[in-house]
Amino acid sequence: METDPLVRDYLGRLEAAAWMLPGDRRRELGEEVHEHIDAALAAAGRQDEVAVRNVLERLGRPEEIIAAEVGPGGPPNPTQAPDPADPARRSMGGVEIIALLLLTIGAIFLPLIGPLIGLVFVWSSSYWTRNQKLVATVIVAVLLLITIAGLAVGSGSAAQPQTTRSM
C-alpha cells in the first residue's frame, strides 16, 4: 500500500520534531505512529483524505507527541546507562535464539514444521517490531508457497501419461 502524502508529511514533521531523541528511538517512534495510523484507517474502513485528516487530528500535532515522549524532564541524557528493560536496547534472549535456530537448522531437520514453529517464537518475542515480524512471516510464507506450488506442478506432470513415444 502506498503511503498517503498527508501521512508522509505528518511522519516527516514527527521525525523533524524528534531530532533530540536517539536515532533508534526516533525510528521506532515513527514506526509506532505509522502502525497506529494504519490501524486507525483500517478501523475507519476508508482511506480517503477526510479519514486520514481525522486520524491525524485525533493523534495530535507531531510536536505534542514528541513533548509527551520526552516528558517534562527534557530530552533523555545520551550518556545515561541504557535501560535493560527497553526492548530496543536489550540483546537477544532465549526466545530469539530458539526462533532463529528453528528458522535455520530447524528448517533443514524439520522441513515446513521447523520454520513455522520458529515463526511462533518470533511472534512471541518483543525483540522485533510488528512490521519486522510481518516481513519475516511473508518471506517464509512466500518461499514455502513456491515450494508447495513447485511440488504440486512436479507431481502433476509426473502423473500425466506419456503421450509421445520414440519410434
Binding site: 528448517a107 517464509v140 513447485g150
Partner: peptide, 30 residues
C-alpha cells in the same frame, strides 16, 4: 541420489527470514 531443487527452498525460506531478523536486530543496536 539427487534432490529436487524445489526442496532447497524450504531451508532457504527459514534462513532468509533469520538473516532478515538478525540484520534488523543488528541495525537497531548500532
Amino acid at each position: 541420489m539427487s534432490i529436487e531443487p524445489v526442496y532447497l527452498l524450504i531451508p532457504l525460506a527459514g534462513i532468509a527470514a533469520a538473516v532478515f531478523l538478525v540484520a534488523v536486530g543488528l541495525r537497531r543496536r548500532r
